[in-house]
Design a binder for these strands. Structure first.
Length: 875
RNA sequence: GGGCACUUAGCUCAGUUGGUUCAGAGCAUCUGGUUUACACCCAGAGGGUCAGCGGUUCGAAUCCGUUAGUGCCCA
């Protein structure tokens, strides 16, 4: 068989993915097996794959593939999210480029364009996930705006409304004038910007020549002022109590009020109050019964209420009003100033605090069970440090503004009657019936009802995702009862509030239990310098290029190598490169074994039998370690385990022992053992590197059509002999020492050596002599009763090994080596004795720990004696 | 300003709940190496006051206090 010396992923990945698909291995239908379920964090339908997705989906695929191989009915549900604001913004831009203004279209007309866009761009990202090897049940692909998911959203809205959790209210919202919608607090990003602080003089009403000066960063908002406020404790302004002042330029008379909110130290100590455009002013306004004058239109231009500059953009007005104020003599001074300004996460537009009528979801009751669930680990967070953050947010949770002034999304199922009253219903027909009942007017028709124009926040569909992907709002509960609650959720910690917390709330509210048992938070993928990867910085590698260069397996390994749970990870191309190298290592180990001629008639060398015995145990031990890592969601540790198991233990130790001499055949027993071990290893590595393991697995033995590693069971955990493993470590130590002797003495590997051992209490395992002999090319190993002259020596524990040398031994060097070791061992013994001499240690420490110390003492004493003797002899 | 994390080798990080193998891994560096599986490799080596200080304990990277720096969240 011709097998290339370098593994080429491009030749296998496509092939196996198609094979898996054709055989339906990703599919899941409810059966009698235990389910294992993951729902994908749905990526934005029109988005493209980025490094965060790569990490996230690699981890999910590892968990799903492992569960599948452990015999569970594994179901990974893929899908996409309609992303209201982002998608609508993209469609609006596209239309604009075509010369079409969104507002010239009807709602239905616009939605047609939006669906067209979605159909065209939607799902690209899912196709990209296939390249990564994602084993999703693609037949289950969901979209947050498809029929089933939409139904769930509407039903949940009506349900929550009927339970009294949803209300309509006037609130100060974060207004995005570009998207013309309200965004949540979490979607506002505060950035430090250089701006100016304007000092503006207001004339005291009826007292020409008398002024008060306020400081503001937003001079255009003075047109909406309804008061000036001072601290009641501020002596400087006591004389203003009860007076009124005139808003510059428009000369509106407003009161001077007193409130302790005002910081006497800041600015002039005198604050303008604009309740419609500042959240703090709004609260003061509420306390003092002030009027709110909203001077802004939805698009950020000034409204008629502003009286001047009507229809001009807020930032234009800022420039113009500075000039006007100056000319009118109201501008005292302007200072440079740095402050934090909120920007929309979606459109990067400066957010305007704005009074607006919105739909809200009351959170306090929903939050209670969701908070408890996480605090008592009914839902487990990995890493647990996110519990604190979660608790803090949940204990201070604010009502959720669920309406968005957009068209792309789930239209709010609220229907208004002519008199302004409204009904809430799942469909037009039900709404009409409700309306007739409520109004007592049986002649009402749909024409008399007007459905709310707004849509729901995208998260109002995402939070139902673990339920709606299984059609959980419908009477047929077959699917949802089987798969829900799901097992694991893998997501970025940046959406712990947007999504994770809300899914948990929805789970308890609509299903009476948690939506997932475990949440694995991934970190953010950053570049080498620790910067967030972003399009504008151009510091993100193209994921598909990485796959092309290093193979999907290599990239998967690379993602995991730098990704402890929850910690940010610094990505660098050396990581997938390391993954690729590992794939190549596997390939060559397999190639080596496969290249041997097998001769069933020759006897198995003892060294090989011993190596097989050892590695069998070694494998079992590591399998237990790996299982433990997975139990604790230490996925990158699990990878490191298989990595060293394969590379160091299997390739560097096991294969080197059993390797037949050049151009000699291998015996059948050893060959089959090696093949079986390789097969076990392929199972263990498969979840991490599905493609190469499948390829190798098919080469190992004759496989039938339709067989696959991905659906064959993981090897079962068996007990192992720990003492044997310890013994082998001592054997390795002896081997390493002989290798060092060879190197230091420049003895080539082809020249055989002799090894003599003066056996101590520990350190020499005679049984494994054939292994030592094989690996360091010895004539033989013999036990001796006394020290050997003319030899280089070393210790393993208290056993002393001698390598006789034909050339003269450098006494000075040997002495130096021995003295050094003696010094170290004496220091070591000293420490041990200190402990043992301490009565409180002997009395207080567990018996086991004391016994260990005593053993250390005995070992060290024996070794010191031997060392001293050797030194004396050399001298 | 309030809260929460974090600080371990040149770099990225483990360190599983105070006790053999506790000071580790991978990468990087350095020294050797054409022993036919792999140079995408092999055999070795160096490198750390576990941020500083103080405490608890027989025993601390691990627990407590404090200082400094970094990051995140909230205002």
């Amino acid at each position: 068989m011709e097998i290339a010396s370098k593994y080429d992923p491009s030749k296998t990945e496509e092939k196996w993915y198609s094979y898996w698909m054709e055989n339906g291995f990703f599919k899941s239908v409810p059966d009698e097996r235990e389910p294992y379920t993951i729902v994908i964090p749905p990526p934005n339908v029109t988005g493209v794959l980025h490094m965060g997705h790569m990490l996230n989906n690699t981890i999910q695929d590892i968990l799903v593939r492992r569960a599948r191989m452990l015999g569970k009915n594994a179901c990974w549900v893929p899908g996409t999210d309609h992303a209201s604001i982002a998608t609508e913004a993209k469609v609006v831009n596209k239309l604009r480029e075509e010369g079409i203004d969104k507002h010239s279209l009807t709602r239905d007309g616009f939605l047609e364009h939006a669906w067209e866009w979605t159909d065209k761009h939607g799902g690209i990202i899912l196709e990209q996930l296939k390249k990564l090897g994602a084993s999703c049940d693609w037949d289950r692909t969901c979209f947050t705006m498809d029929e089933v998911r939409s139904e769930g959203v509407i039903k949940s809205f009506v349900d929550l409304y009927k339970k009294g959790h949803i209300y309509r209210g006037i609130r100060m919202v974060n207004w995005d004038p570009k998207a013309k919608t309200a965004v949540s607090d979490e979607e506002v990003i505060y950035k430090e910007v250089k701006s100016k602080l304007y000092y503006i003089r207001y004339q005291v009403d009826g007292e020409p020549g008398q002024y008060v000066t306020i400081a503001t960063t937003r001079p255009e908002t003075i047109l909406g002022d309804t008061a000036v406020c001072v601290n009641p404790n501020d002596d400087r302004f006591k004389h203003l109590a009860g007076k009124r002042v005139l808003v510059p330029l428009i000369n509106r008379s407003i009161p001077v009020i007193q409130d302790e909110y005002v910081d006497m130290e800041f600015g002039t100590g005198c604050l303008k109050i604009t309740p419609a455009h500042d959240i703090n002013d709004y609260e003061i306004g509420m306390r003092h019964n002030l009027e709110s004058i909203d001077i802004l239109n939805d698009d950020g231009t000034l409204s008629e209420k502003a009286e001047i500059f009507i229809g001009e953009d807020r930032f234009e007005v800022r420039k113009k009003i500075e000039k006007s104020l100056d000319e009118a003599g109201n501008l005292a001074k302007v200072e440079d100033y740095t402050n934090k300004v909120g920007f929309s996460e979606r459109t990067d537009e400066v957010i305007e605090p704005k009074l607006s009528t919105q739909w809200f979801l009351r959170m306090s009751e929903l939050a209670k069970p969701a908070l408890d669930a996480v605090m008592n680990d009914e839902v487990k967070f990995h890493p647990a440090k996110f519990k604190n953050l979660y608790r803090h947010w949940m204990e201070n949770v604010k009502d959720w503004c669920i309406s968005r002034q957009l068209w792309w999304g789930h239209r709010i199922p609220v229907y208004y009657l002519a008199d302004g009253t409204f009904v809430v219903a799942e469909s037009d027909a039900e709404a009409l019936a409700e309306a007739r009942k409520a109004s007592g007017n049986a002649t009402l028709s749909m024409n008399d009802l007007k459905q709310d124009e707004d849509v729901l926040d995208t998260w109002a569909s995402s939070w139902l995702w673990p339920i709606t992907v299984f059609d959980g709002f419908n009477p047929d509960k077959n699917e949802v009862d089987y798969y829900y609650p799901t097992n694991d959720l893998v997501t970025g910690h940046d959406i712990i509030f947007f999504w994770v917390a809300r899914m948990i709330m929805a789970g308890y509210e609509f299903k009476g239990t948690y939506p997932f048992k475990n949440v694995y938070f991934t970190g953010m993928v950053r570049d080498k310098q620790g910067r967030k990867m972003s399009k504008s910085l151009g510091n993100s590698p193209e994921p598909l290029d990485l796959i092309k260069n290093f193979g999907a397996d290599g990239v998967r390994v690379g993602m995991l190598l730098c990704s402890p749970a929850g910690g940010d990870l610094r990505f660098d191309e050396s990581l997938p490169e390391q993954g690729r190298n590992f794939a190549n290592k596997m390939w060559n180990a397999f190639r080596l074994v496969k290249s041997w001629d097998v001769d069933n008639s020759i006897e198995q060398p003892e060294s090989a039998a011993l190596a097989i015995e050892w590695f069998g145990n070694r494998l079992q031990k590591e399998m237990a370690v790996i299982a433990d890592h997975f139990d604790k969601y230490r996925v990158s540790d699990a990878l490191m385990s298989v990595y060293t198991l394969f590379w160091d233990e299997f390739s560097s130790w096991f294969l080197e022992v059993i390797k037949p001499a050049y151009q000699k055949p291998v015996d059948g027993k050893t060959y089959h053992a090696a093949i079986d071990f390789l097969e076990d290893l392929m199972h263990l590595i498969h979840p991490f590197m599905p493609f190469i393991t499948e390829e190798v697995w098919h080469h190992l033995k004759e496989r039938k059509e339709g067989e696959s590693l991905m659906v064959s069971p993981m090897p079962a955990l068996k007990s192992f002999d720990e003492s044997l493993l310890k013994q082998f470590e001592l054997v390795k130590e002896a081997i390493v020492n002989v290798r060092t002797v060879r190197k230091e003495r420049n003895v080539a590997m082809r020249d055989t050596l002799e090894l003599k051992v003066l056996k101590g209490d520990d350190g020499y395992v005679e049984r494994f002599n054939p292994v030592v002999q094989k690996l360091v090319n010895l004539d033989g190993i013999t036990s001796v009763e006394e020290k050997v002259e003319g030899a280089v020596s070393f210790f393993v524990k208290s056993s002393e090994f001698f390598v006789p040398m034909e050339s003269a031994i450098n006494i000075e060097e040997e002495l130096e080596k021995l003295e050094k070791e003696l010094q170290y061992t004496e220091g070591f013994l000293n420490g041990v004795m200190k402990k043992l001499g301490n009565e409180r240690f002997v009395a207080g420490a567990p018996e086991k720990v004391v016994a260990i110390e005593k053993q250390k003492q005995a070992d060290a004493e024996a070794k010191i004696a031997a060392l001293k003797e050797s030194i004396a002899r050399l001298k």
